[in-house]
Amino acid sequence: MRSRVLFARLAPLLACVGLLAVWQVAALTLNNDSFPTALDSIRAIPSILGDKEALINILASLRRMAIGFGTAVLVSIPLGLLMGRSRSVASFFNPLLMVIYPVPKAALMPIIMLWLGVGDLSKTLVIFLGVSLPVIYHSFEGAKAVEEKMLWSGAAMGLSAVERLVRIVLPAALPEILTGCRTGLVLALITMITSEMIARQSGAGNILFNALDMGQYDTVFAMIIIIGGMGIFLDAAFERMRERLVRWSEPQFDIPLSFS
């Protein structure tokens, strides 16, 4: 039984090693200049992270990501909860959100840059937009599914409407909200990378494409490993926190849902 738990813990790690091995074999058999092996790419990682400028750029990106994610979550959760509990609020916002949903948020980058310049504000705003929708959506679904009877008993105990939202709806919808935040977190990273790829100013996405333009294929693949590692690490870290917060509830998916 012990070994089984150990295996479950190690399985993702084994999967990583397996994927890298597949990559290694594929690169060796293809023997293509523009497709370095996994080992070569891993060897190129220290030189990227050793480059002071690149490191500062990446850290600045991460700071913007954290700010964009934080503000988006703070705004989206109350909005989603309100939409879930009030039919009017829901029908007010739903069509607007449906129109915005299929628009790629990172694609707004050129327009926003036109208005607000290329500074932190534009980049953070795009991340904010990218994170908001899934968090609103999941908070909405979570609040909608809260049992009416729980709210009735809350009202009977003399809780006001706002108190009911904070003391009953919020905790009851928490598992669903956290699912939304988990999606949002990966999305923040994706939006950040994509907008940097489009704006081509600085950051991880920019390093990636500069290397591509200059034919430094080792660097390209090393950057892919770094970004992929960030995604997997952020998701795993969030998942651990989520498990602590909602021990009482079974996770709906024990594998993460992510999308751009």
Partner: peptide, 19 residues
């Protein structure tokens, strides 16, 4: 499938685009 999906799902796929 499970561990592979657990690793690949949160990976920002757009980073694979250059590859």
């Amino acid at each position: 499938v499970r561990p592979v999906v657990r690793v690949l799902a949160p990976l920002p796929k757009v980073a694979l685009y250059p590859a």
